[in-house]
């Protein structure tokens, strides 16, 4: 019996979004098919792995990932340059975790200085993330967005509680914006609509449906991403056609499997390789379900993900 492959052509497509400026600018999205389905449509842009750096030393990261940045992580500028120049990162994600009131409680002015210094030192695109404290993020991200004006950064994350001020600041200073909601396709759609209703261009948004680590709810993120992408393609739902973000490192490097030493868990094998794979595998599963942008921590995990992307595109 002859085989006629049933190829799908979809009504919708994912917005192509460019971040950064100059020859290091990166474009993600733009595909009109499910992830890596180049056999039946357009997949013009490679997914992006952004390496995470922080405004304060990563004292809270587990040893196995912290030690990969020994000698550079005491200073965000050094750290970011290391990621760009040595690790060849195509983008940097600067998390201003030190601004959290329960952490170093750094001020918005401190954050502005860090962002300016990092921007002066790198030419690849920058994603600037707050500390995930809704109130403090408002103050910090508004100041930072202004300081980074016209560098076409990605600012995040805007959530239901604080999207208005953050979206306004991103809009006024020509940045892209991450809209984050918690593991629910309807909340995600609703937030996109609310932000666009303010006049923010929906094609400048990135959707973060909230990440979860392998073994700790990954299947929820996986299916929410898959459903968002299917809504974008099959229903041509213009409120769900944004590129998707997986903020992988932060969720992965707090689970037991990335920390427990082999001496405690002999049946789990080498702790170092286990942690790296945990991050890389979480990232790979999200790529297959729809993520275009990944934020990662371990250089070897990021390298492995780039290598599997080479096989996928």
């Amino acid at each position: 019996m002859a085989f006629t492959p049933s190829k799908e052509s979809y009504a919708g497509k994912v917005y192509a979004l460019t971040l950064g400026t100059g020859d290091k600018a990166v474009t993600v999205g733009g595909e009109n098919v499910l992830p890596f389905h180049s056999f039946e449509g357009e997949t013009p842009n490679r997914p992006l792995v952004a390496m995470e750096v922080q405004d304060v030393p990563p004292a809270d990261w587990p040893e196995n990932v912290r030690k990969a940045y020994e000698g550079v992580s005491d200073d965000p500028v050094k750290w970011a340059k290391h990621c760009q120049d040595v690790l060849k990162a195509r983008a940097i994600a600067l998390r201003l975790i030190g601004t959290h009131p329960d952490r170093e409680n750094r001020s918005a002015e401190d954050a502005v200085k860090t962002v300016k210094d990092v921007l002066a030192a790198i030419s690849v695109p920058l994603i600037v993330l707050g500390s995930n404290h809704a109130e403090k993020d408002t103050a910090v991200l508004v100041a930072v967005a202004e300081a980074a004006k016209d560098r076409n950064c990605v600012i995040g994350k805007a959530q239901e509680a604080n999207y208005k001020t953050i979206a306004a600041a991103a809009m006024a200073n020509n940045h892209k914006l991450i809209a984050m909601s918690e593991l629910d396709i309807n909340l995600s759609k609703q937030l996109n609509i609310l932000i666009s209703q303010m006049g923010f261009d929906k094609e400048k948004l990135i959707t973060d449906p909230m990440c979860s680590a392998l073994g700790y709810g990954l299947e929820y993120t996986y299916s929410v991403m898959e459903r968002i992408r299917l809504a974008a393609l099959t229903q041509n739902d213009v409120t769900m056609q944004q590129p998707l973000l997986g903020d992988v490192g932060m969720y992965v490097w707090k689970v037991k499997e990335t920390q427990a030493p082999e001496s405690d868990m002999p049946q789990w094998g080498s702790a170092e390789e286990r942690g790296i794979l945990w991050e890389a595998e979480t990232a790979t599963a999200l790529l297959v379900s729809g993520a275009e942008v990944l934020i990662m921590r371990h250089p070897k995990a990021a390298e492995a993900v780039e290598k599997v992307i080479d096989e996928l595109v």
Binding site: G215, W268, G269, S270, A271, R274, E281
Partner: peptide
Amino acid sequence: DKWKNLALFTL
């Protein structure tokens, strides 16, 4: 490898 098995089993 045990570390690899664990991750694949979990996925």
